[in-house]
């Protein structure tokens, strides 16, 4: 790490720690949401960047959010145990669906639609079990005030700290996968599975690993989100809508770069929030209408995402220096951004 990057890191940390002292509560709330969703979008991008387009992350998010909340309300189980359990549940779900998917070569459209069905299954199960989950009316955790045991903090500063740590951890994991041999293997797989297998890449292992990490992190993000907002609704944490929201924001920001999904979260959430405040309650739907148009335009004109487009402009010739592994020449030339970090 060069000196300038060290300075940048210190400045970033200083800014991050000053934020809760400066910002009014509403904006702090917004920042916390952006950080938590950034983490979730980054988790999705771990898979998405290799062409495994999952519309099933709504399922993992829903499991992550509901499991600790239900365990807390009905059994008084602390989220410190509930959250790991929810991660395990999401990982199992991912493994049960992912393993046969990868084994049977369910890819592309088919993979997207199978995972879409998965998020619908979780959404509809949550609605159907309305005696336990409250169904479409939503679910509120029993509040006990400030408590480490219950992981509930009315004071926003605590969740801000948690969200920052979570976000940084997400970036670190993204980096770890980006730097590891796993990335080249996965890029090779996304180009051509047979060719990848023929040069000795364990296709199943590589895919399962990234899927499980991605699903587990998404569940963790869902659990923290649930602990923070203290209200869960099947429509907002599970199902197609939230899956699309995840995919859109990650793609809009750019899945091939470290900060892409975070930029996606920042832009989409500030945009929806800004539009919502702007229009108030006068024109319900106006905010999302504009948002929808922008999404379509973004996909048509900036398929690399915002960060990807910017990097293209600013870093045109920083071609891959280290990623010259023989198996992925095409993927490397097509995606200069991932190596130019």
């Amino acid at each position: 790490m060069s000196g300038s990057r060290l300075v940048a890191a210190i400045v970033l940390l200083a800014v991050l720690s000053a934020i809760p002292a400066i910002l009014p509560p509403y904006f702090l709330h917004l920042v916390i949401q952006i950080l938590i969703w950034s983490f979730i979008y980054t988790a999705w991008a771990l898979m998405g960047r290799f062409g495994f387009v999952s519309f099933g992350h709504g399922a993992f998010l829903g499991v992550g959010a509901y499991v600790p909340a239900l365990l807390w309300n009905f059994y008084g189980l602390t989220p410190w145990l509930g959250i790991p359990l929810s991660i395990i549940a999401a990982v199992l779900l991912a493994a049960v669906v992912g393993y046969p998917c990868f084994r049977r070569r369910v890819v592309g459209h088919y993979f997207a639609l199978v995972t879409l069905a998965l998020s619908q299954v979780v959404l509809l199960s949550l609605v159907a079990a309305r005696d336990v989950t409250g169904g479409s009316l939503g679910f509120t955790q029993k509040a006990v005030g400030h408590s480490w045991y219950a992981l509930q903090f009315p004071e926003k500063g605590y969740f801000y700290a948690i969200a920052v740590l979570l976000w940084l951890a997400g970036l670190a994991i993204w980096r770890w996968i980006d730097r590891g041999i796993g990335r080249e293997a996965l890029e090779a797989i996304s180009e051509d599975e047979d060719a990848a297998a023929s040069i000795g890449i364990d296709v199943m292992r590589a895919k399962m690993r990234v899927t499980i990490i991605s699903a587990g992190l998404t569940a963790l993000g869902g659990a923290i989100y649930g602990q923070y907002v203290m209200y869960l609704n099947p429509e907002t944490v599970a199902g197609i809508a939230v899956s699309l929201q995840i995919v859109f924001a990650a793609i809009a920001g750019g899945v091939y770069s470290l900060l892409g999904p975070s930029v996606g979260a920042l832009l989409t959430l500030s945009l929806t929030e800004g539009l919502r405040v702007w229009f108030g309650t006068n024109f319900i739907g106006a905010a999302n209408t504009i948002y929808g148009i922008l999404l379509v335009l973004c996909i048509i004109f900036m398929p690399q995402g915002i960060v990807g487009a910017l990097q293209r402009v600013t870093l045109p010739r920083r071609a891959p220096a280290k990623a010259n592994a023989t198996e992925t020449p095409q993927s490397v030339t097509r995606r200069p951004s991932s190596a130019a970090q």
Partner: peptide
Amino acid sequence: LLATGGLLFFLQSF
């Protein structure tokens, strides 16, 4: 997929 997904979002909101 995403372009038509964005359209879904647009149509519902509109």
